[in-house]
Design a binder for these strands. Structure first.
Length: 243
DNA sequence: ATGTGTTCCTGTCCGC
DNA sequence: TGCGGACAGGAACACA
């Protein structure tokens, strides 16, 4: 991969689902997924004006990219669930990681009829359907939990058994949750940082995620938030408000 | 075909 | 302190 990156110029930086995509002037696109714990950091002198030393390589630094201007971009990932690949720009949609992805939740093709069709006949819990990147691309555990709480839908409910009106209501709720989270710079549980290095602060706005045993925030609701593991992932929900 | 459980890996935190 | 176990933002894969 190093030979194919050497001398290449980044012409565009994009995102698809949870993948970062850097188009190069070589006709290839660099794909990056941060997984759970991955992080890209910039050090040195991005503008090439001053001279700065780069920090010593840290534990779990896996990929280091040096630019002519003197900037160094480092990919660090303790758990190594992240990924990097280099693919043909023109045929990127056929790449095995991008091929089956569903619509962007903030885009136009993620709409009521799409979600109703995707839920129809599904026997799996709505929680796992919303985490399925083929249904909608880019939702993770936190935002699914939060969206289902706002929609008043239990994560345990079979997707195919939710009425169309309630499924439709999920669409703007998912958009709202994501828009608010982006506005807040994301959720910094541990590793996540904004692009500028600062912590995100949407974790302070969680209604259910990580709040097991705490009181539900719905007015007059006396229930405590529960945690239940569904296909290996924790779901947080209020058994009274979500049905 | 669909749906669920396991797996990859390291770090941190909690109870004993 | 030390040690074991649970758990962590993702997603491919094996298997029923």
């Amino acid at each position: 991969m190093a030979e194919r990156l050497t001398g290449a110029k980044v012409t565009a930086l994009r995102r698809r689902s949870k993948y970062i995509l850097a188009d190069l002037d070589t006709g290839e696109t660099l794909l990056i997924h941060l997984g759970m714990s991955g992080r890209m950091t910039v050090s040195g002198d991005p503008l090439g004006v001053f001279h700065h030393d780069h920090p010593m390589p840290a534990k779990h630094d896996h990929v280091v990219l040096d630019t002519d201007a003197g900037a160094r971009i480092t990919f660090n990932d303790a758990r190594r669930f992240g990924a990097m690949d280099l693919m043909d720009t023109v045929t990127q949609d056929d790449h095995w990681l991008l091929k089956g992805l569903g619509p962007e939740p903030l885009g136009n093709s993620f709409n009521e009829s799409h979600l109703i069709a995707a839920f129809a006949g599904k026997r799996s819990p709505v929680k796992s359907v919303l985490l399925d990147q083929r249904v909608v691309a880019g939702l993770g555990n936190i935002y699914v939990c939060e969206a289902l709480y706002r929609a008043g839908i239990s994560p345990l409910r079979h997707a195919g058994r939710i009425g169309p009106a309630r499924v439709a209501a999920l669409v703007p709720i998912i958009r709202d949750v994501l828009a608010e989270a982006i506005e807040a710079g994301g959720s910094s549980l541990r590793d996540h940082r904004q692009a500028n290095g600062e912590l995100g602060y949407f974790q302070h706005s969680f209604s259910v995620y990580g709040r097991e045993g705490q009181l539900c925030q719905t007015p007059d609701c006396e229930q405590k938030i529960r945690r239940k593991v569904q296909s290996g992932r924790s779901s947080f929900y209020c058994a009274a408000c979500q049905r």
